[in-house]
Structures are given as structure tokens and as C-alpha cells.
Design a protein around this nucleic acid. Sequence first.
DNA 1: ATTTGACTTGTCAAATATTGGCAAATATAG
DNA 2: CTATATTTGCCAATATTTGACAAGTCAAAT
Lengths: 103, 103
Amino acid sequence: MANQFGERLKQLREQNNLLQRQVASILEIDTPMLSKIERGERKAKKEQVIQLARIMKVSNDELLTLWLADQIIDVTKDEDLALKAMQVAEDEIKYRKTKKKNK
Amino acid sequence: MANQFGERLKQLREQNNLLQRQVASILEIDTPMLSKIERGERKAKKEQVIQLARIMKVSNDELLTLWLADQIIDVTKDEDLALKAMQVAEDEIKYRKTKKKNK
DNA sequence: ATTTGACTTGTCAAATATTGGCAAATATAG
DNA sequence: CTATATTTGCCAATATTTGACAAGTCAAAT
């Protein structure tokens, strides 16, 4: 029952032959915390996601996208209306982008 | 700078010729609170959204969808990656639905 | 100009949630 | 078995959210 960000993070950590201990130390957190992040029990902070992208040598965007997606899934959790709501949200975000000239 | 749910709520309240005072009393909150909900400064609880749908004589789904959409927009706030992340989240939700037989 | 009613703003403490960290349990490897 | 890696459970500190109230603005009526 993990999340997408955590799964990818673990995969990357293994590809890079790093231990939780090592990665955790760079992020200045303890290993239990990193373990929880990998298993989706805790949420990384944005700053940590960016650090992790550098450590794992992937783009910020890749990890930030997964990280954000997890949060979206989180708020829509078990709702049936999730997909409909996402459509509405998507339209609104697009709409806001077009009128970014103002304000 | 309102949100979609709040705007719709206000619209419905006016269509139904109700005062904040009246609606608030049904929800058992004070008027300042309802005012804040309409202006998107505070988030209604799911239970209140359902009550409001009844009061305003619209479907639960309509209001719940807007309410959820606002929360999605909230977590993705100013992120450029919002749309990309929503796509990822959407795929994941669809995927989870297909394998709902298990669990 | 003052009163009245509807709505908004600002502030606060209480309730609730999130956080980081530790100690202990459980894997996994050698 | 021993050592190292990871996970689990728990707690106190911190932060966020909540509901409530007092005071504010605003418009209409008089």
C-alpha cells in the first residue's frame, strides 16, 4: 500500500546502490523517517524531494510530479467522484493559466 | 479570490432566497463561518456539503464534486506541474479502480 | 443622520493533526 | 549466531485547523 513517489524513490535508491542510512544522512533525517517516506507513511517536504532528485540523478520534475500526484490521490482518497472532481479542477487550473496576465 | 464550491453555494443560496443567517442556523454554525465558507476562506466538512445539497435542492454529487475539486486545486496550488501530476493521479485512480475486485 | 439588518474581518484559545526522533522489533545477509 | 539494514510503534513538540466571538463595513430605510 505504498505510493508512487515512495516506490520510485526506493527503486532509485537501489539503482544507485545507496542505503537508507546514507540517503537519510544527506537529508539530515533518521533512517526510520526515510523508511516511512519510501513506504508512503510520511510525506517528504518539497525541499527534500528536490534534494532527492539531485542525489538520485533524475530531474526535479519527475519526482515532484509523483510527489504531487500522491497528494492529489490523498485528498480524493476513496471518493467515487475523484475523476469527475479532477476534471473540474483541471479545467479551473487551465482557465486560471489563461488569465495569468492580470493580477 | 473565491473557490468554486463557495461561489456555487452563494449562487444557490440567493436563488433560494435564503439568508446566511438561515442557512447557518440549519448547519448549526454561526454566520461568520458560513460567510467564510462561501468566500473560500474556510473549508466545509463533507457532512455539511451534503446538508447543503439538501437545503439547496441539488444533488450531493454536484456539490461534492466542486468541493473536492477545490481541495485538489489547493494541494496543487501554484505548482507548474499541476496538470502533469493530475494526469498521473488520474491514471493511478483508474488503475486502482480496475483492481478493486481484490483487497 | 441614525437605525437596522446582512454580511465580513480579525482575533483567539481549544481541539486536532503533523512532525521529528528514539527505542525496540523484525528482517536480511554473512 | 552476529551484524547490519529496515521497519514498527510510540511520544512529545510543533503547527494547523477549528469554532466562536466582538467589532467592523456597507446599503437601505427612514
